[in-house]
Design a protein around this nucleic acid. Structure first.
Lengths: 109, 109
DNA sequence: ACGAACCGTAAGCTACGACTTACCGATGCT
DNA sequence: AGCATCGGTAAGTCGTAGCTTACGGTTCGT
């Protein structure tokens, strides 16, 4: 094999900064500068992450004067979540019962 | 902020090779050499990935003669899955309805 | 029209993760 | 005992993701 590199949704959310951006935008739409202020990185770095998220269809941007407001794209988020679920479903097919059983037994030995 | 680096479950499954290993072990337990044969990387590389997965509690290993059989740890897998769900739940809290609505409308405009 | 605010992009650096080769220990077989 | 198989670990290389600084473009205010 060599083509097991289909789902790159993992790479997108693999970066903690990107996850922080997504979480922040989930709360409410924000401008680039706002995001940069909450995060321990520079503004251009935020821009680059936003570009990745936009290419993935996770966020939409809208010009508002000199500022540019980014917001989460519900459809993109849902699609990504489905994509990640595909891994769990496909990979753990036939293993699911055991997993769920273990999940049930968690916390009460 | 600075401490948004809590959940490292993403880093673990962020690597495509590691995902392939998990998917393979979900099918059935395998020895290190078996895994290396299916993947386009060397055996030591597989060993290193297995170490990461074991440290995360995702796999268990068992000595079988000279071979060492690895299998998925159901509890660990379930725990990881829960951990990832925490992100979705926490991050998208209050955004959930919109997302689910978009998911429903997907494919039938 | 001019300066300020806001942002995207280019260029370059750096740290780290993933991989390789080489070596060594442990187990099984004859 | 001796050889082969299997696997973990060490050491070192390499690519690339993520960051920074520098620069240029666009929009708003006065």
């Amino acid at each position: 094999m060599a083509t097991y590199r289909e789902a790159d949704g993992w790479e997108i959310l693999g970066d903690p900064t990107r996850r922080a951006i997504v979480a922040s935008l989930a709360e409410r739409p924000r401008a680039v500068g706002e995001l940069a202020q909450e995060l321990p990185i520079s503004r251009p770095a935020v821009s680059q992450h936003l570009r990745v998220l936009k290419d993935a269809g996770l966020v939409d941007d809208e010009a508002a004067g000199t500022r540019r407001v980014y917001r989460l794209n519900p459809a993109g988020v849902a699609a990504l979540r489905d994509q990640l679920d595909v891994f769990w479903r496909r990979a753990l097919e036939g293993f699911q019962e055991t997993v769920e059983q273990a999940a049930d037994e968690e916390g009460r030995p």
